[in-house]
């Protein structure tokens, strides 16, 4: 099997890979093109490849706001959903950080009996189906009066976010080692000073990465919000679900889909800067 090693190890793409990359790119972003067209359509029926009537042609004639006029109006509740999504994501991220930082520190530095089991326990929420957690929590939350409340949604979101956060932060602490805190202690710094002057600044890039990732996971959660929000708390994913649950897509649904995609694009631009692929690798990989 002595093949041409130069090909095996070349850093250039093979022709297959070149086509493959194009196909995957088309698969990922291609469907957005008809989505954009649909969002601008008034009536777009099979088998037309372009809408028979555009939204702009009907804009003045209709009694109610159509397509983008509806999406961007207060009636669509999209702003409310967007604000809720961001507020929930931010709160979840903050609580998650407070909870996970101390645990990650210990996990990264200490060895103790049952550590493996504990780590396994921490990742359990990732492998227990969300439907199971959601329905069980709903029963409890109704009893406690937490169903349909902002706080209820926030604490439910902690379940799937904690495992990611703790893994990413543990990786950060492992990367830092222990020496610098000890040196600061030897130099006479008090614990608080060490935390704020030494540890946090050094941790910051990793913490930002973990926080962004947690925020991302939270903004993407549908099922828990849907079950526990009871229609009272709407977020971008649940708003979109209500629009498309029948399995059809009209202009305003297409518009809402595009708006729901926007925060993802913004996050993408930010995370590419802050989260290097290696950090993700530490989060899921080994």
């Amino acid at each position: 099997m002595a093949r041409r090693e130069d090909i095996a190890l070349t850093s250039r793409l093979s022709p297959f890979q070149r086509i493959y990359l194009l196909l995957i790119a088309g698969f990922i972003v291609g469907p957005f093109l008809p989505l954009i067209i649909q969002s601008l359509a008034f009536r777009w029926a099979w088998p037309d490849l372009m809408p028979g009537t555009w939204w702009m042609q009907q804009r003045g004639k209709s009694a109610i706001p159509l397509a983008w006029d509806y999406v961007l109006s207060p009636y669509s509740h999209i702003w409310e959903a967007a604000i809720n999504t961001v507020a929930i994501g931010t709160t979840v991220t903050a609580i998650c950080l407070v909870i996970c930082l101390p645990a990650a520190r210990v996990l990264a530095r200490e060895r103790f009996r049952g550590k493996g089991a504990f780590e396994f326990f921490l990742s359990l929420p990732l492998i227990v189906p969300e439907a199971a957690i959601g329905m069980a929590l709903l029963m409890i939350f109704i009893r406690l009066g937490l169903a349909g409340s902002f706080f209820g949604i926030v604490i439910a979101h902690l379940i799937p976010t904690i495992p990611y956060m703790v893994r990413m932060l543990t990786a950060v602490y492992q990367g830092l080692g222990k020496d610098f805190e000890e040196q600061a202690m030897i130099l006479g710094a008090r614990p608080m000073q060490i935390l704020f002057r030494v540890t946090l600044p050094m941790l910051l890039p990793g913490v930002v990465a973990g926080a962004l990732f947690t925020f991302l996971v939270s903004t993407n959660i549908f099922l828990l919000t849907f079950f526990l929000g009871q229609g009272k708390i709407i977020t971008l994913p649940t708003l979109l679900f209500a629009k498309i649950s029948g399995g059809t897509l009209d202009a305003s649904a297409a518009g809402i889909t595009l708006v729901v995609t926007l925060p993802g694009i913004v996050l993408l631009l930010i995370t590419e800067r802050f989260i290097k692929e290696e950090a993700f690798g530490k989060g899921f990989g080994n």
């Binding site: 990922i28 469907p31 008809p34 993407n220 959660i221 994913p237 979109l240 889909t257 993802g264 694009i265």
Partner: peptide
Amino acid sequence: YKYLYKLPLMIPYTVGIALAVIMLGNG
């Protein structure tokens, strides 16, 4: 490309469902 391929990671499943509806349905 490294930006592009990560896009689906950043957005909810419901968006993917909407895309499936508009691409793959009988209409």
